[in-house]
Design a protein around this nucleic acid. Structure first.
Lengths: 230, 230
DNA sequence: AAAAAACCGTACTGTACGGTACGAATATCT
DNA sequence: AGATATTCGTACCGTACAGTACGGTTTTTT
């Protein structure tokens, strides 16, 4: 644990390379991106590039890690504060969708999904840093609501997944498959309002508790994401 | 409209090539698949390959079209026949999930999503042939149920999308991102049972009708998928 | 059987890639 | 200023790729 996070010039340069590389990887995909083009865009030489990253896969890995970190660190409230549950959920859903539907975020998802079979660690790292964290935060909020009797009892994590799924139901696959334009703010809002209504009805506290299914392994709960090598 | 679908030997060979190419594309992705390897796997020469397909992109397009066709043509009942709605929905959900979670189907989704930005027509064609059709069939069934007062009134297509989303909620993203193993049959079943329960509660006929949001353009209803060129 | 078409194997072209080598230029540190 | 580390530009290596060319061979048609 170093006390002061020294920001050497090397670190800055490394970060600059990552940011340029990110743009190009996101635009062109992994296979269609050449190290030469990255070096040219970064304004340096290829030799320098290889002084910072030993290979193309290592640079790619660094880029995905970097974005994953941003995904995880981008905080927005997932807490339910007010007395109007529906209203709060609409706000949460809007923030979530606005966040993950940004063009850059979509490009990232396409990139990681497309390479998930060849770079399994990256899919894992991205999921851990992004979706898993958000789901966990949401689940915590839902757990409290369940205990307060404001939400139907059941598996809080599954409730979070259901909430997320309902919010994405209409638009996400279209966007993922690049079918038609992304919904504008107005449609997104209407979409979420109906989804939240459906969610609130499905999880009305007056209903009998939902069964809690045993969860299949693969939850490294307290392991953020090491990803030492790729 | 030719009266008889003559199956020439050329057609058969073309189909054989497509089937081999499909396997290799699905295994390796678009960029990492070479025409030479396809020719070798097909047992022919590269010249022959180019006698059937003018370019790599054209072959890729043919492959995606072919699979899309299979996705669309693979029929399984999405109708609700019995008096036990929940039971029928569980059966439908199971069939749907089993179908789209096959390793080949998952590889296909990853492939199309990964290339969706560079081959927009393919994303569209796949969506039209696969998900859109299933959703439309399900929506038809739901519309009837709504009219019969067995399901809450609202937009039937949105209801189908919600149903689909709830069924996928837990496992799909994990599978798409290649995080952990795919759920086995037992877990899948339990997952779907809870999802269907939530859906039935969200769409209980006793609830007030859901608002019907105006749908954003991009529904070429009566246009199957031409995809003349890529 | 003769003619036509399709196919095969192989070699080739041009290009692009990941990665390396190296001397010159530049910046950084003491 | 002098020593040191870093960066630059460029050329290069080996490889692999999409796509073409072509002569010999098999299959199909007439």
């Amino acid at each position: 644990m170093s006390a002061v996070p020294v920001e050497t010039s090397r670190d800055r340069r490394r970060q600059a390379i990552i940011e340029v590389a990110r743009r190009i990887f996101l635009e062109n995909g992994y296979g269609a991106t050449s190290m030469s083009s990255i070096a040219a865009a970064v304004g340096g030489s290829k030799g320098t590039l290889y002084a910072y990253f030993r290979s193309k896969t290592e640079l790619f890995s660094a880029v995905v890690q970097d974005i994953s970190g941003q995904f995880g660190e981008t905080e927005f409230s997932l807490a339910v504060q007010g007395s109007d549950l529906k209203r709060d959920l609409i706000a949460i859903g809007s923030r979530l969708m606005t966040f993950i539907r940004r063009p850059e975020a979509m490009a990232m998802q396409r990139l990681v999904i497309g390479e998930a079979e060849r770079f399994p660690e990256l899919g894992q790292a991205f999921y851990d840093a992004g979706p898993r964290r958000k789901l966990a935060a949401l689940a915590t909020a839902f757990e409290t609501l369940m205990e307060q009797g404001r939400l139907r009892r059941g598996d809080p994590t599954l409730a979070a997944e259901h909430f997320f799924a309902l919010c994405q139901a209409r638009g996400h696959h279209r966007v993922l498959w690049n079918v038609g334009p992304a919904p504008d703010a107005k449609h997104l809002r209407a979409e979420i309002e109906i989804s939240v209504q459906a969610f609130c009805d499905a999880y009305a506290p007056s209903l009998a508790p939902l069964p809690v299914a045993e969860r299949q392994g693969c939850e490294p709960r307290s392991k953020p994401h090491s990803l030492a090598s790729v």
